[in-house]
């Protein structure tokens, strides 16, 4: 039969061909729109100020220079202090590490207790917690400031870490509770029959199974806490201002001519941590958004 082998591929109609072209054109144009700011920041950060004054924000640097990056990192000024962004970077790390560890640990314990144990009133508490995560921070901020001032920790590292733990709790608890609800309850029952108690089951059985969700939690908390501006501004105090706040100060408080190349290098530097987390984590990042479904 001659025609038997000829029909290997369905011929595309004109309509289908144009459809494909349209799809790629749409996606391509929008991809350019999304990439534009990043591109502008990168090329500008490698230019000299003379070149920036010339205009042409989209052109590639004629003389490639990393001076702006060095300046942004080591000697950019906030007001009178010219210490560079590295101070803010250090502060952000100091805030980030304990906040992430404690908020995830607490979230795991809460989620575990909520999904496997019978605690009267726990679901009401959880409901309040979730509701709280929808309320703008502005409602809580002032009383918290007063509370920290009373206890003498206002403007210290402990204050900002504690604040991140408080405001990270709804998402973390929800994340772990939903994950644990998907685990077979027989596992828990079998461990109970074997005589294991609350902590024993948590440490020996539940925690080892929590690795995937813990990764998601780390991704979510690292990006959220690193990107935080408001809480750092209010609670961290002068000594511990996180990178985002310092960045805004560098960019928006300078007098005289603005050093756009330094500012843009500083902006890219500030985005580097969450951007790296995002690029490395790939699908996990999306999973975080989808399973958390509430963001503080």
């Amino acid at each position: 039969m001659p025609q038997a082998k000829s029909a290997t591929k369905r011929p595309l109609t004109y309509q289908e061909v144009w459809g494909r072209v349209g799809i790629y054109a749409f996606l391509g144009v929008l991809a350019l729109f999304f990439l534009l700011p990043l591109y502008v920041m990168l090329v500008t950060s490698f230019k000299s100020m003379d070149e920036i004054r010339l205009g042409l924000i989209f052109s590639l640097p004629q003389q490639f220079s990393i001076d702006a990056w060095i300046k942004a990192w080591t000697s950019a000024c906030t007001g009178l202090e010219c210490t560079g962004l590295r101070v803010g970077f250090g502060n952000s790390v100091k805030i980030l590490v304990p906040s992430v560890i404690f908020s995830i640990l607490l979230g795991a314990i809460n989620g575990y207790a909520l999904s496997f144990w019978k605690v009267k009133g726990a679901n009401v508490l959880f409901a309040c917690l979730l509701l709280g995560s929808f309320v703008p921070y502005q409602v809580f901020i002032y009383p918290l400031v007063r509370f920290y001032a009373q206890t003498g920790i206002y403007g210290s590292l402990s204050a900002i870490v504690l604040t991140h733990i408080i405001f990270g709790m709804p998402v973390m608890t929800l994340l772990f509770r939903n994950y644990y609800s998907g685990l077979p309850v027989e596992l828990f029952k079998a461990a109970r029959i074997d005589g294991a108690g609350f902590w024993r089951i948590f440490i020996s059985i539940i925690l080892p199974m929590s690795v995937p969700i813990a990764i998601v939690a780390v991704i979510m908390q690292v990006t959220a806490i690193w990107n935080d501006f408001l809480l750092g501004l209010v609670f961290a105090g002068r000594e511990n201002l996180p990178m985002t706040v310092q960045l805004n100060n560098i960019v928006n408080t300078t007098t005289g001519e603005r050093a756009y190349n330094v500012n843009m290098a500083a902006t890219v530097l500030t985005s580097l941590v969450p951007l790296t987390v995002y690029l490395v984590s790939g699908r996990w990042f999306v999973r975080g958004i989808a399973s958390g479904a509430v963001k503080g």
Binding site: L35, L247, Y260, N263, T267, S271, L279
Partner: peptide, 27 residues
Amino acid sequence: TVFLYPYAMSFVVAGLIWQWILNPDLG
């Protein structure tokens, strides 16, 4: 990856970038 990366960045960064692009003296 391209469409979601802005979401990974801080609002401060988003604000600054677009301020520059729309800034009449620079953008």
